[in-house]
Design a protein around this nucleic acid. Structure first.
Lengths: 109, 109
DNA sequence: ACTATTAATCGTCGATCAACGATAAAGGTA
DNA sequence: TACCTTTATCGTTGATCGACGATTAATAGT
């Protein structure tokens, strides 16, 4: 109906109505987990094994302990990060399955 | 210092101090752009060429026109989406470079 | 039992998000 | 010119984010 092409083709009428996209919510949730530079850095720290305990992460970020704890909570809720109690400390690790799921969903865009 | 391993190894003292991570901000910004189910669906619509004009997108989402326009603005600001004026309509298309950048950054986690 | 250490939670504050209706702007068409 | 279509913007509302300090668990060690 409308011819347009910022560099390449697009635009077809599209008669199909999409159902409620469950994957969209899934991807949005995972993306939101890393939609903050502090959380990206935390994920990197955990992946590179440069940090594990909350205190170590706090030492590497310009944020208060409570703020880091909040970000860790968000990452835990997303499933990307798991926490294991180790005495008075808590050791955080990446959940490889969830990370893989995120990569797959993004790669499938 | 602390031995811990939720399934596998982690934890090393990590003597290196990380500088301000510019890539973290970059990834966080792009992730944030798709950190909402409506925006994920919009990206999918544009990728599958099932929609292009704003009105078509509105027709496929349970959102008001102004809300969709806002999401499109966010996607445009992230660089993931480009808009080209076509008469009274605007044709939106995915920016392949930015999408590739997002994929690369996520894959590199 | 007491103390020190570590992490989570609470309460607060300002800023931003997400949604909407209403309105304005831009471009076709009669 | 007047009208219609399409999209962007404005203004508002309630909800959530992100940051912090202060406080509260929880645990290890003495």
């Amino acid at each position: 109906m409308a011819k347009c092409s910022p560099k390449d083709s697009c635009c077809e009428p599209a008669p199909v109505k999409l159902p409620a996209d469950v994957h969209a919510q899934e991807l949005a949730d995972l993306a939101w987990a890393i939609a903050h530079p502090a959380r990206v850095r935390i994920v990197r720290l955990l992946m590179d094994h440069n940090a594990c305990v909350c205190g170590e992460i706090v030492g590497q970020l310009p944020l208060a302990q409570s703020t880091v704890s909040q970000h860790l909570k968000i990452l835990k809720q997303s499933g990307l990060v798991q926490g294991e109690v180790d005495g008075p400390k808590v050791c955080y690790c990446i959940n490889p399955q969830k990370l893989e799921q995120l990569k797959t969903l993004v790669a499938g865009l």
